[in-house]
């Protein structure tokens, strides 16, 4: 399988990365190189093989359903590019 320019632009949009025409063209070649490389997986017989979900045989751990941490609003917003009174500020999203 390979991708064309329109697909690359669509994927960039899905990934929320702005790409110029020139970048999209360059990426088309690069992505096709990688997709060509992974193409060899199609020759492996995977009939009846379970997909891996956990690399070590383990049961997902659970913990007590209690508050262990929190009340750290100032810490949470400390690294925000733009915040006000413990809120993250973003461009207007509701008209």
């Amino acid at each position: 399988m390979s991708v064309d320019l329109a697909t690359v632009k669509r994927v960039a949009r899905l990934a929320r990365i702005a790409v110029s025409e020139e970048e999209a063209e360059r990426m088309t070649g690069e992505l096709n190189g990688i997709l060509g490389f992974v193409e060899q997986l199609s020759e492996v017989n995977v009939d009846g093989v379970e997909p891996m979900t956990s690399v070590t045989p383990m049961r997902m751990k659970t913990r007590e359903d209690i508050v262990m941490d929190g009340d750290k609003a100032a810490d949470v917003v400390a690294n925000a590019p733009n915040s006000d009174r413990d809120f993250f500020l973003v461009p207007k999203v509701v008209e």
Binding site: I17, A18, N79, P81, P91, K92
Partner: peptide, 23 residues
Amino acid sequence: DGVRYGLRVDGKDIVDMYEKTRA
């Protein structure tokens, strides 16, 4: 995405901001 930490590049709306920040 330019909201909670790190770099933010402003855009004309929020999606534009995400896309420019990540680019």
